[in-house]
């Protein structure tokens, strides 16, 4: 086995998240079973929605539920719970996403999503230091961007989050803007 490229792709932080994922497990009194999307349930300053996303080329799946606290001025992600099956990249990415966005307001979630997509489109070159710093554990996915077939794996959870947020109707997440670096 060659050394280097595989270790760069499968960084320890990715393997750890894949093995011990954060936020995994949908609440049983939730919005429906894994494999189903559900639109918002609004209840006294909270709001929740769920999205099921599939990567049709490989069959990887994630069902992600987002809970918002809408009692303040700006909606804040109060929880992300998910269920899924797939490769270590796709599963670790949802776990890292969970850590990044829980507690963030929607503008911040947007920014993180934009930064992560920027990283994924960098073809292995990475992003500037400030963005990398901002992404925290998610910066470990830099190596994934060198393998076009795997980028979708890393983005699966982010697509589910985006769709779930739209389903909450709390506010439409801004479309990613290209000039943001």
């Amino acid at each position: 086995m060659s050394t280097g490229s595989m270790e760069q792709l499968y960084q320890q932080v990715i393997l750890d998240h894949a093995k011990f994922p954060h936020g995994r497990g949908l609440p049983t009194d939730g919005l429906g079973p894994a494999g189903a999307s559900a639109t918002a349930v609004v209840d006294h300053g909270t709001c929740a929605a769920q999205s099921h996303q599939v990567n049709p080329t490989c069959g990887d799946e994630v069902t992600l539920r987002v809970d918002l606290d809408t009692s303040g001025a700006a909606p804040v992600v109060s929880d992300v719970r998910w269920e899924g099956q797939g490769c270590s990249i796709s599963q670790a990415s949802v776990s890292v996403l969970h850590d990044l966005v829980v507690g963030a307001d929607l503008a911040r979630v947007d920014e993180l999503g934009r930064h992560f997509r920027l990283l994924m489109s960098s073809r292995g070159a990475g992003v500037d230091e400030a963005v990398e710093e901002d992404l925290g554990d998610a910066a470990a996915f830099t190596g994934v961007s060198r393998y076009p077939a795997r980028i979708k794996c890393a983005l699966l959870g982010w697509s589910a989050l985006n769709d779930a947020l739209i389903r909450t109707g709390a506010t439409a997440p801004a479309t990613p803007t290209k000039e943001t670096a």
């Binding site: 086995m1 050394t3 595989m6 270790e7 760069q8 792709l9 499968y10 960084q11 320890q12 932080v13 990715i14 393997l15 925290g136 554990d137 910066a139 470990a140 830099t142 190596g143």
Partner: peptide, 10 residues
């Protein structure tokens, strides 16, 4: 295992 020896992981 050989995994996890990469740099840059936090």
């Amino acid at each position: 295992g050989a995994a996890g020896k990469g740099t840059g992981a936090r």
